[in-house]
């Protein structure tokens, strides 16, 4: 618990000093996955909150059809996808980061985005349509910060130059699409097989 508090304090240091911070996270400090996992959970919960509690003026979701577990999963799925594809690409591109490193970088980078998102959800209940653009630009600050931290963090843990990092990120994007494609292919094939077995059983039973 005490170590988590220590991590929490350091997390804010990382937000403002990404290069030093992520270097220490990778090489110096004791590794603990409690805080990153907590951040991931908060990220999923923020997704649910933004679905339900964004102010009516900006909230176009059908609340009666809400499924919080589904939202939780769909919020976190892109991060899992990024984790997998980035790791699989960087191992081929001589990146030094492990999957744990990528996980730490991703979650620490998420913190400003989450903060701005949560404040945005609260503020969205107090604005009118004309002020929506202001709120959007406020929330975008957090998102840009997130991308910046992620980029710096990946540079540090993989020991890449920025240009290499951009190349690997592009390849990461392509490989993510391929992973999704393969996953769909797999699930479709499995359902075909299940369907086949089912038909065979039905045929056999009604013979």
């Amino acid at each position: 618990m005490a170590s988590m508090l220590e991590d929490g304090k350091y997390m804010f240091h990382v937000m403002l000093h990404p290069f030093d911070g992520f270097y220490a996270v990778k090489n110096v400090r004791k590794r603990s996955y409690t805080l990153p996992t907590l951040i991931m959970l908060i990220c999923g919960i923020t997704g649910i909150l933004s679905y339900q509690y964004t102010g009516f003026i900006l909230n176009y979701n059908p609340l009666f059809a809400m499924n919080s577990i589904m939202i939780f999963v769909t919020t976190l799925a892109p991060f899992l996808l990024f984790l997998l594809s980035n790791w699989s690409v960087t191992t081929l591109f001589d990146g030094n980061g492990t999957m744990g490193d990528i996980y730490m970088v991703m979650t620490y980078a998420l913190v400003p985005k989450l903060l701005f998102d949560i404040v945005g959800i609260i503020l969205s209940n107090t604005i009118i349509q004309e002020e929506a653009a202001l709120l959007h630009s406020f929330v975008v600050i957090g998102t840009v910060w997130f991308y910046f931290l992620l980029f710096c963090g990946l540079c540090v843990i993989h020991e890449y130059s920025p240009l290499t990092n951009i190349v690997t990120l592009i390849v990461t994007f392509i490989s993510a699409i391929m992973i999704v494609f393969l996953a769909m292919l797999y699930f479709m094939l499995v359902s075909k097989v299940i369907g086949f077995v089912y038909t065979v059983i039905i045929e056999w039973m009604k013979r």
Binding site: A65, N67, V73
Partner: peptide, 11 residues
Amino acid sequence: FILVMMLPSAN
């Protein structure tokens, strides 16, 4: 339980 919760609500 989690799997059941993931089913879309019936409309």
